[in-house]
Design a protein around this nucleic acid. Structure first.
Lengths: 357, 357
DNA sequence: ATCTGCTTTGCACACGTGTGCAAAGCCTGG
DNA sequence: CCAGGCTTTGCACACGTGTGCAAAGCAGAT
């Protein structure tokens, strides 16, 4: 049904080799036959078979995108960016969801291996070491996005947001507004993101010359319910905080919902700042001040990095390093300042950090 | 680097044909050599090359998923369901975003053609006829999800939500609560979804014996801003409505935000019902009563349908019809009733409708 | 006219896998 | 002991594409 290179060869009365070269714009074919063949291919509706080509070339021009769930608005944005950038570079994206079940995981890796993907990009908040080991067995470049994994193999690199700096900027925004009692609601306990954001929070306090009060650090869950339950515990602290930095937007949203029910005015009585800038951060009331993760940039950089690793001929590029991107403070109304945006470090939102040994 | 079927043949001192048959569990191979080869393949870490296999078999076990943007929470859920179901059936999913630019569209189709996808599933709220024509040129089964297209070719089928019935159920929920002045805020003008939901709204009024008042139909945009701007115009109607059914959740959210600023209590002074059940419908205050689209089911059915078309040997299955799924009314607090869920038609949430000529 | 060098084309093989057909091996019945 | 049938294996080709190498065609120089 589909027209192959041989069909064109028959129609043009040449060998299939000549057709292959003509379509590849090789200088080994005379200009006139080249033009004739190309016109013929156009007319016959020829479309090269990527399977056959990659079989010969040893490259599939395909990257596997491993994801826990696309339902997460974050991950969705990153997926979008990865897909767009990959297509710009001539690569296709094949999707693989890593559900919770162990067997599905190995099935997914097996699939990626069968499809002979050239590289793998992983976007999962939590990547267990053994899962990563499975993926690395593909002996293919691996780029982790916001996936803090202790071990990074010779082909494995990471693109992360600078949690510490972002949290510091967010908290500094509150100290700049004159707050001196600022709380922090944590995320899930085992999350390394949380540790880093807590550190950034403490950095900001120190810069402002404020003392760190452990009573003002209240445990959340990373989900809305955690923020909801955190509010009464915050109000019980003496003296109570006048501002709160939340691990993420969902936590902040839950906390603000509780505040509304309790009759506490945001931001007049309690200023709130989140982290992530999920799409609904601007829809809630009052619109949430938060640190926007550069999702588009993260997806783009992940693809670029994967391609660099690919081009470098499977030899780990010695001068390649992990990438750490800066978030952007988006000031809306929940923090009590007039809405604006704060670009990190002037124009450049990218900084490279040498992390490899 | 990667171990092929020939490497195993060499190690087992047999021909590659025998290895191929052994791994395919063919009865033409003796039990003992079969076991020996399979063990050997396991040890050597053999993974079949999908490219080579599909080259011979004429099937890639891959379906192309065309999408406008994964950022839309709807589409994300459908993508998730499609991916999961496809993997259960042994198919991979390759992603293609249809951005607004025309050239990217044809590039995407070209890519799907090169990859020789076995079927295409389209999830786009608006599919132009010419785009669909491009896709149909692949001469591959096409399944449209919630994409109302006038023309459906011999290989093209659709899975849609029953907008009319869903809107009727939502509006009936309001009439059951005793409301007699019920407004409707429309979506984008050219959307056929909107026409169908408006029809369902009128059905419900008629069933309840209420008159249809054109003044109570106010134009929105399908986005939050439209709902926001619709509220004052609703309040100007005499006598004013006590309830409003919105084209979708975003419209309802915008309208509720405006209500909060205007000092109108929801649901006490104005009951609000939306459509879609986006994830944040339950996070806003008060939680939104809405019609949940069966996204998981839609994704699943789309894949099943594509596979049926595939199995039917490219001959359009004569007894196949488009699928129309029923939404589920999710009653939360914005409509003023006690929260519960209403399953459509008892247990079965699926109904087939003959639509082909 | 012959040789040399350049351009253009085709042959043949490769990639990794599946399968029809023939051949070889084995067993059983005569 | 041999024929026939059954089981098991290998040869060869196919899928669609890319490429090294040889060969053919051609022009120019001696």
């Amino acid at each position: 049904m589909t027209v192959s290179i041989k069909d064109i060869a028959r129609a043009a009365a040449v060998s299939h080799s000549t057709v292959s070269r003509a379509l590849g714009d090789s200088p080994l074919v005379s200009a006139e036959t080249k033009a004739r063949i190309q016109r013929l291919a156009q007319e016959m509706g020829y479309s090269p078979d990527a399977q056959a080509r990659s079989l010969v070339m040893g490259r599939t021009l395909t990257i596997g995108l491993v994801v826990t769930t696309i339902t997460d608005p974050f991950i969705a944005e990153i997926v979008q960016a990865v897909e767009t950038t990959a297509h710009e570079r001539g690569y296709s994206v094949i999707l693989a969801t890593f559900s919770s079940r162990r067997e599905r995981e190995i099935a997914a890796v097996e699939m990626l291996q069968s499809k002979r993907v050239d590289a793998v990009i992983v976007t999962s908040s939590r990547v267990g070491a053994h899962y990563l080991a499975h993926i690395e067995r593909l002996s293919v470049p691996v780029v982790l996005i916001n996936s803090h994994s202790a071990h990074t193999g010779p082909y494995t690199f990471a693109v992360n947001v600078d949690n510490r700096h972002g949290a510091c900027v967010a908290t500094t925004h509150l100290t700049d507004l004159g707050h001196v009692r600022i709380a922090y609601v944590t995320g899930a306990a085992d999350h390394s993101d949380d540790q880093e954001r807590l550190a950034g929070y403490r950095d900001a306090l120190q810069h402002a010359g404020l003392p760190f009060d452990p009573a003002l650090v209240v445990a959340g869950t990373g989900r809305a319910g955690g923020g909801e339950r955190a509010l009464p515990r915050l109000l019980a602290v003496q003296p109570p905080p006048t501002a709160v930095f939340c691990y993420n937007d969902l936590t902040a949203i839950g906390l603000m919902r509780a505040a509304q029910h309790t009759g506490i005015a945001v931001p007049r009585e309690l200023a709130v700042v989140g982290f992530d800038d999920i799409p609904f951060a601007s829809y809630i009331d009052p619109p949430l001040t938060t640190v926007a993760q550069p999702t588009r940039e993260m997806g783009r950089q992940a693809v670029e990095m994967a391609l660099v690793l690919l081009e470098s001929g499977r030899e780990p590029a010695s001068d390649l390093s992990n990438v750490v991107l800066q978030g952007e403070l988006v000031v809306r109304e929940s923090s009590g300042a007039r809405p604006h945006r704060v670009q990190p470090d002037g124009q450049s939102s990218v900084s490279n950090t040498q992390e490899r040994r």
